[in-house]
Design a protein around this nucleic acid. Sequence first.
DNA 1: GCGGGGCGTTGCACCATTTGCAACAGTCAT
DNA 2: ATGACTGTTGCAAATGGTGCAACGCCCCGC
Lengths: 250, 250
Amino acid sequence: MSQTVDRALSILPLLAQGPADLGQVADRLGVHKSTALRLLRTLHDHGLVYRQQDQRYRLGARLFALAQEAVENLDVREIAHPHLVTLNEQIGHTVHLAVYEESEVLYIDKVEGRYPVRMYSRIGKPVAITVAAVAKLLLADLPEHERRAIAEKLDYPMYTSRSTPNAAAFLKELAAVRDQGWATDLGGHEESINCIGAPIRGAAGRVVAAMSVSAPNVVVTAEELLTLLPLVRRTADAVSREYSGSVTPH
Amino acid sequence: MSQTVDRALSILPLLAQGPADLGQVADRLGVHKSTALRLLRTLHDHGLVYRQQDQRYRLGARLFALAQEAVENLDVREIAHPHLVTLNEQIGHTVHLAVYEESEVLYIDKVEGRYPVRMYSRIGKPVAITVAAVAKLLLADLPEHERRAIAEKLDYPMYTSRSTPNAAAFLKELAAVRDQGWATDLGGHEESINCIGAPIRGAAGRVVAAMSVSAPNVVVTAEELLTLLPLVRRTADAVSREYSGSVTPH
DNA sequence: GCGGGGCGTTGCACCATTTGCAACAGTCAT
DNA sequence: ATGACTGTTGCAAATGGTGCAACGCCCCGC
């Protein structure tokens, strides 16, 4: 592993917490000011870091552009998108697409519902991993030891009284999700919002993404939402078929 | 500037175009495979790069998380957000907030309108710089030489017949915007969508951000939209005052 | 107006780090 | 099996990064 690059990259999460001046960066990195300066300059040249008027550094614009381009080039997303739109038109609720990567689950696409629901989700934002339907679907498919390892090291914030309380409950839920092939989040994240989700599988049968439909229970009750499950699953399966076909098998 | 870091960072935009394997990365960087491998490994350790099942590399999840954290810590955004929400509630249309940085204008916040408009904008996405109201506001405030330099090197895509056609027209428009203190985009980006925008100024009077209201002309005509201008400007001014007050003058 | 402290910046000499090579290992196709 | 291809490792050479010390600058207090 390259030391120089390692140090340079360590600056990014540091600046993510807020702007910092040269001295602060050098201190936190444990290197000389001049070293920090050169690293920052290089980051700056690549647009990853921006220098504001008060000379302090903060993360730069190119970072967004990169994240943006990256998400738009994900092939699952590309294939799934039209299906999400169609589903959204059919049922009117907000539709999400998410993937798992390195112990995190994050939204990579979203189609807003026509009901005025303000869900706090955003593309690129890490998902509430212990409660979200998509997170359950993605984690349920991991090999057992990995699933267990992740479950153990997670926090279990009680967003509501129906949030998953601890690792044991979570693993049990994951097992159920794995068996039934779909997942729900009934008020586990936001008291008034329910979700149902289904997995998208690649050629090898592994879950590569998950999609979900979210609706506030002032519009549809949880039971009514569950009646949409077959439609959601059919959509997810359609995406799976298309995705499996288009990818060179490995 | 650090060569090692420079090379490592050059990998990111390269991967933004799509996944690539070790050999391709090494070739495009012009370095030996083993060198590329070590750089990729370092990037991987920091989560900026992800290795998919077929061994190819693509941009990683942490990139999104970083961009996300960064945008949430922008103080203009933090201050402006409640104002955007209020404005949105009053008029029902989509509200955007954007900043200028290193020759780019990008959205840093967005509140969706209640009308089913599907505008292709997203937080972190670079704005259509030659036509968007927010872009005009931000560029209009730059020192003259910088403004000219940017105008010259931009492309002027004709999204619609009313798009800004060339540098001369753009500079003229910027001068007008600068004088009047507000800006519009009347069908210059999407034929059926009009925007009006107003600048947010820091303590020194410089424009630090810009906000805009967008509405499809099937809902309100351009003239009707313009009647909302005073309200938009008042909101922007309120943000300006709050922002100026909270920032240590320089 | 003068002097001190803080911060960012530069040139330089040393040596740790990175580099490319060459050889190895694994996988797939012929 | 054999060959071609890709990813991986150990190593010796030297390039490129590092920390130091000195400088310039601005701001603040005396």
